[in-house]
Design a protein around this nucleic acid. Structure first.
Lengths: 203, 203
DNA sequence: ATGCTTGTTGGACGATCGTACAACAACGCG
DNA sequence: CGCGTTGTTGTACGATCGTCCAACAAGCAT
């Protein structure tokens, strides 16, 4: 008794290359969040994405390139979230700056699972010059946005660079500690600390 | 023709357990500095320490326990270096605080190779509750030292906790970025930023 | 000197890793 | 409808991983 003339359900579907690439990146981010850098293997990511292990090598030269692409994607999503928070804050420059730091500690950003992507990426910076260059590029982009927010608040040009480095470092340090031990201090405290620091820069 | 009665050079030497344990920890730190978290395997560490691979399992329950012990040891050495710098600064409270942040960016501390130990440890925090607890303990110890330095500068008691969190975050953020991309800004700039922040806290 | 304790060795073991590759099939095009 | 392109599969491969353990030997006690 053969199966009736089923419409030959395809064993897999072809996808537009950029969509498949994005699916692999998102699967990588989920695996990193769940299992950490040590658990982010080609096979685990392929299972998460629902594809065969061999497909990873078809889109990325190796697991490191996939991690780098995942970092770039997640960092872009974070930047977009922050930009959105800034835009919602209205036109007042100081309110926009406050919105930036406040959003930096919101649950969606200060997320221990998100930190796993950063750690996996950082672990490659020292050994891979190309990844170090990518980090420099993304860091300078993030700092440039911060400089613009500071400039709008009247920070003189000759201090913008240094103040942006300072704010970035303070926010990143608070963010890191908030991810590593969420019970030590609250997101509200972190926001208060950062906003008070902005007071001293702008005053 | 047998070999002459050589004094039977021992194939290995027994060592006091704590000394051997320390040797393994220091070997782990060197491997982490050279090869990163991904290259810190039991075998690589054993070769670095000049012992057999099996000995690692004899002193540590696993590679994660060795990494945790290595972090504790390196963190202790860093704290000792900073304490030494503070002690050399003399009795003046503000000078001691300045010495603390300045030493935090000295080449021996803001070292990309040192960051590898931190990253390897951080990558375990999310998944291992015991390691998260160790991180909380070492962080609160570091913050307590900072609170004492701030208190000596006249920071009122009700602000000591928050200001210590702030200084710690700023210094850590600068330190992290200094390690990740040493060419972006200098240790002197980082020290200037941190000391200027202290001005606003103490004033 | 002799025996005992135990630090130490070195390899075996199964699991898992990243990568490569030949075969297959889904889909666009003629 | 048939053909060619190529996204996709599944597996094989060698390397390396962490762990385990029986045997060995260094050093201490007697």
């Amino acid at each position: 008794m053969k199966a009736p003339a089923a419409p030959h359900q395809p064993a897999f579907r072809r996808t537009r290359p950029d969509a498949r690439r994005l699916a692999l990146i998102e699967a990588c981010a989920r695996v990193l969040a769940r299992a950490g850098a040590a658990g982010a293997s080609v096979r685990a990511i392929a299972v998460e994405a629902g594809v065969s292990p061999g497909l990873v090598g078809h889109y990325f030269s190796g697991i490191e390139a996939l991690v780098a692409a995942t970092y770039a994607h997640v960092e872009g999503a974070v930047a977009e979230t922050l930009d959105h928070a800034v835009a919602e804050a209205g036109p007042e420059p100081r309110a926009r700056l406050d919105a930036f730091v406040t959003a930096s500690f919101a649950p969606a950003i200060a997320d221990p699972q998100l930190l796993a992507t950063w750690i996996a990426f950082w672990s490659l910076v020292a050994a891979r010059p190309a990844i170090a260059a990518q980090h420099d590029e993304q860091y300078s982009g993030s700092r440039a946005r911060l400089e613009a927010l500071l400039a709008a608040c009247g920070v003189p040009a000759e201090r913008q660079r240094r103040d942006a480095i300072a704010v970035s470092a303070l926010v990143d340090g608070l963010w890191l500690e908030l991810c590593l031990s969420p019970g030590c201090f609250s997101a509200e405290e972190a926001g208060d600390i950062a906003r008070r620091f902005l007071d001293t820069l702008i005053s």
